[in-house]
Design a protein around this nucleic acid. Sequence first.
DNA 1: TGATAAATGGAACCTTGTTCCGTATATGGT
DNA 2: ACCATATACGGAACAAGGTTCCATTTATCA
Lengths: 204, 204
Amino acid sequence: MTRGEDGDSLPERNLRADAQRNEDAVLEAARQVFAETGVDAPVRDIAARAGVGVGTLYRRFPNRSDLVAAVFRREVDACAAEAARLSAEHPPAEALVRWLRRYTRFIATKRGLAAALHSGDPAFEALPAYFRANFEPVLTGLMQAAAAEGEIRGDVAPYDLLRAIGNLSSATGADGAAHAGSMVDLLIDGLRLGAASRAKMPDR
Amino acid sequence: MTRGEDGDSLPERNLRADAQRNEDAVLEAARQVFAETGVDAPVRDIAARAGVGVGTLYRRFPNRSDLVAAVFRREVDACAAEAARLSAEHPPAEALVRWLRRYTRFIATKRGLAAALHSGDPAFEALPAYFRANFEPVLTGLMQAAAAEGEIRGDVAPYDLLRAIGNLSSATGADGAAHAGSMVDLLIDGLRLGAASRAKMPDR
DNA sequence: TGATAAATGGAACCTTGTTCCGTATATGGT
DNA sequence: ACCATATACGGAACAAGGTTCCATTTATCA
């Protein structure tokens, strides 16, 4: 039960330079291909775009779903990280709106992921928790900042909003990122209207 | 825009006797195989079990998903049809309970279907509507009859109950039809308890 | 009982995930 | 700088599954 190595808590270290380079290339290629073709894109296509052989890809990601999950996590990280930048560069309400648009774009690249999530593949089991653990605090922060300035209403649960946008964007499906976008704008307007009209309107 | 043939509203007629026989065999084989292995079972297996070649199968179901959808519809029909029989042979409350158990069994054979539903395949698009259009009226009838006799509470929406059972059964996943079954029994008890204790308890 | 349209079966093909292994190269010690 | 060698690479080869094709068989009907 004992393990000789003591520092293996970080998933990958002592990686040869070319190996690290290739891993990055694969993740970036996969991100692009998944965004263009959906998560069902063939592994060969991704390897080709990354300029590596499939063997190299499989050395790092023992199977397809591991790669999909890794790309997903990476994109969650990137999207969540942007909140800090937006908060620093814009007033709260604008930061919130910009981030919600960014999040909408994130969702839009997830074609086919919903099906994968329900496939029972172990590689995907942790993703919903990862999603929530990263996005909920971020959006909570943005919304509280905007609400504190009276720019939006304060009675909307951040997680509900995350889900609502997710549903809106995936429901429209193939045709329109445009359509989804305008629906999301509607939601955002709703957030604001609630704050603006609160003084005038009764409960409902 | 005019169509010459006037009687093509029924999907298949003038089918040669052996063709009809084979279609039935394929559907029945698919039902069994899907129940045993899940909807991801290979087409070859189904053809083999039906005692036909894959060509025969594909002649009737141009692709895999058409077969899956056809089996699904057929099982919805069978399950819904049983409500009438149960109502005729049993008092309302018992008919309801028996049907809910039957419905639970129906759900249990749907391993993997949830993922397929979200896959975007056009063959599956109409299935949720078909599901609801067939089951909701049936369960509404059963529940109203039981409620009319005071056997169950009357404030549960049939569709909610359908969904609840669906979620319960799919959530337990691989191991236990037994576990799912006992959870469903709990639901059913809840339905009854609501009616029995209504006189004693206040609003909530 | 033929003539003929309908139906059959399963080999063959294509795409896609995954494995394997001979070859190439980064790296650390000398 | 150079070598020894553990690491990593590429892509051919394999397996599995969906789908197509067509030579052969069979139901049907006059």
